[in-house]
C-alpha cells in the first residue's frame, strides 16, 4: 500500500468513487479501469463507468494474521464482493464479524481510511463495504 504521491493520486477515482470501465462493443463492465477490452481487443470501445457501490458477498474470510500496516485492525473481514453491475472486487467489510455474513449478503460501499504511512506520511482512503440494511 505504501506508495508515492503520484500513484496514490492516479488511483483516487478508482478508490474514492468506484470508477471503472465499460466496453461499448461487448457491453461488459470492468473494475478497476482497463484501457483495452480483453474480449474485443482493438474492436472494443472503452468508456469510463461509475459503479453504484451496491453488491453482494461472493466469498469472505477473516484475516487473523494481517500484513504490515493492518495490525491494529485484525481480526477483520475481507471479502470478494460482486457488484450489481457484474465485476468482483476485493475489499474489507467493516463494522461486522464473519458471523454476520453469508454468501449473497447484500453490501454497500463506504468510504474509509485504508492505511496510514506512519505519523508523517500520506493517509490512503478508499472503498470498503458494509452490510446493507
Amino acid at each position: 500500500m505504501k506508495s508515492g504521491s503520484a500513484l496514490t493520486w492516479r488511483l483516487i477515482p478508482n478508490r474514492y468513487r468506484l470508477i471503472g470501465s465499460h466496453c461499448e462493443t461487448c457491453k461488459e463492465n470492468f473494475f478497476p479501469t482497463r484501457p483495452v477490452c480483453p474480449s474485443c481487443r482493438r474492436k472494443g470501445k472503452m468508456v469510463e463507468k461509475k459503479f453504484k457501490g451496491e453488491g453482494k458477498i461472493y466469498s469472505f474470510t477473516t484475516v487473523q494474521v494481517p500484513p504490515e500496516g493492518f495490525e491494529l485492525e485484525a481480526p477483520y473481514v475481507l471479502a470478494i464482493v460482486e457488484l450489481s453491475e457484474g465485476p468482483r472486487v476485493t475489499a474489507q467489510v467493516v463494522d461486522c464479524s464473519e458471523n454476520d455474513l453469508g454468501f449473497g449478503t447484500p453490501v454497500e460501499m463506504v468510504f474509509r481510511k485504508i492505511q496510514e504511512e506512519g505519523k508523517e506520511g500520506l493517509i490512503h482512503y478508499g472503498f470498503k463495504f458494509k452490510i446493507k440494511k
Binding site: 491494529l72 485492525e73 474489507q92 467493516v94 463494522d95 463506504v110 468510504f111 474509509r112 481510511k113 485504508i114 493517509i123 482512503y125 470498503k128
Partner: peptide
Amino acid sequence: ALDEDAATLAV
C-alpha cells in the same frame, strides 16, 4: 471505528 476519521465521516 479504527478506519474512521473526520474526512470519512464527512464523506
